[in-house]
Every structure is written in C-alpha cells, then in structure tokens.
Computed example of a mutant assay.
Amino acid sequence: MRGILFAVLRHAPTTWNEGRRLQGMTDVPLSAEGEAIAASWTLPSPIHGWRRFCSPLARARRTAELLQPSAVPVVDPRLREMSFGAWEGRTVAELRMTLGATFIDAEGRGLDFEPPGGESPRTVMARLGEWASDIAASSEPALAVSHKAVIRAFLALATGWDMTGRQPIKLDWQKLHLFRAHRDGHVTLEQANVDMDRA
C-alpha cells in the first residue's frame, strides 16, 4: 500500500510572525497582511478538492476559511501548534541572550527540546502519527492548515531528522508540502515546496 496523500500548509502571517515571536498555543489572529495573503491563495489541482482539516487556533482556522469560504474545515486538535510554554511571546534571540547556556542546551536536545510548561517535538510527532494513521485509514487525500513546528515534525517523521543541525530540506513557509500517510502512523515525503496559485 502506497499510503494516502496529504498536503500541509502553514497559516498566513500574524504580527507575532513579523516580530519573530514564539506563538505556540497563544491564539494570535492573522494580521491584516496575513488576511490579504491567505485571500490571495488558490489551491492547485487536485488539492483544491481534497478534504480540509485545520488546527483549532484562530490563525490556522481563518487561513483555512479564506482558502475556501464555501467549505467549513474539520478542526482537529492534533494539528495544533507545539506549545512553547513559558517562552511564548518571546523571540529566540531574546531567550538566547537572557537564558544563555540554559536555552542553548535546550536547543541542542533536538526532538527532546521542551520549554518550561511546554511540549517537545517528540510529543508533537506522536499526535501527528495518530492523525496520519486516521488519514490513511480513511483512504481520502486531505489538506491540513497548521503551523511551522507541526510541519517540521512531519518532516522529522518522514526523514528521520532528529532536529539537530539543519533541516534535511529547506522549506518555504508560504508553500504546500506533500506527504503520504500510512496506516501504521508513519509518513513519507512526496514533494516539498509546492507553489500556491494566486488569485
């Protein structure tokens, strides 16, 4: 069995994206620019006809709505962003400066990087594996509007990347990324950086 295709798209920009702040579970809405960007996107064929899923966070839900105003996406909490706990609202540069070796050591843990009160990429990968297993069992391709750390976790699931060092593939955060879901919860990368059409 070759698995079932699914595409993942990061939500359109927020003001916190512009400020490089860690958003995590903080429910930041799209900025005015983000609304305009999401409204300009058109999904390429055949992805525009696939089932729609999204994270419960407003920035992902709104992006999904703007992609196809006539359809209501299925909200799945497993697609939520990774929680950055006490570090949400701060920038990586600020954390490196204020926490020094403590933060640098945390960064070096890769899949076991876990902010105070937050969750690790390994935990995110576990819930995404469950979601992928459900997609494979349904036998219907899907689109998920989600978040940066979620897409990085899908990439780690697909490639074995341990999240130390550079990503094995450079991802464009305003493009689609295609994977295949398998019934055992593992995923394989089909194609990164698929262009969105523009309205």
Rank of each mutant, 00 (worst) to 15 (best):
V75A: 04
E35Y: 00
S45D: 14
L22N: 01
G19V: 10
A86Q: 09
P116W: 10
E114M: 11
L189Q: 06
S139L: 13
P69K: 04
I151G: 00
T14M: 04
A32L: 15
A12T: 04
V145G: 02
A93T: 13
M25V: 15
N193M: 10
G85Y: 11
S120K: 01
L143N: 07
E140R: 14
Q174V: 13
T98V: 15
G34E: 03
A38Q: 04
M97W: 12
G3C: 02
I169P: 02
L5I: 11
V74E: 15
G89W: 08
P73D: 02
P141S: 10
N193R: 07
E88W: 01
T98Q: 15
I169T: 12
W50I: 11
L171D: 07
G85K: 12
K170H: 15
L43E: 05
T26A: 13
Q174P: 01
L30K: 01
V187W: 03
L66P: 01
R152H: 08
A38S: 09
P29L: 11
G118L: 14
H48T: 14
F53M: 05
L43T: 08
G117D: 10
E33D: 13
E18L: 12
A32D: 11
S70G: 08
A142T: 04
L157R: 13
G108H: 10
G118P: 10
D105F: 12
L157P: 06
W41T: 06
A39S: 14
T123P: 00
P46K: 07
L128W: 03
V150N: 05
P46M: 11
M97Q: 15
W41D: 05
R152I: 09
S139K: 13
T164Q: 12
T98D: 13
A142F: 10
R21S: 05
E107P: 02
G100V: 13
T102W: 05
L57S: 04
G34F: 02
A144H: 02
A199S: 12
A126Q: 09
R90N: 10
F179P: 01
A7H: 04
E114V: 07
R80P: 00
C54E: 03
D162G: 08
G160H: 12
E140Y: 04
Q167V: 14
C54P: 03
P115G: 14
A32K: 09
G108R: 12
R152G: 05
N17F: 03
S120G: 03
P69A: 07
L5G: 14
I37G: 00
E130T: 15
F113E: 11
Q68N: 15
T42W: 07
R62K: 12
D184K: 00
K170W: 14
S146K: 06
S146H: 03
P115R: 06
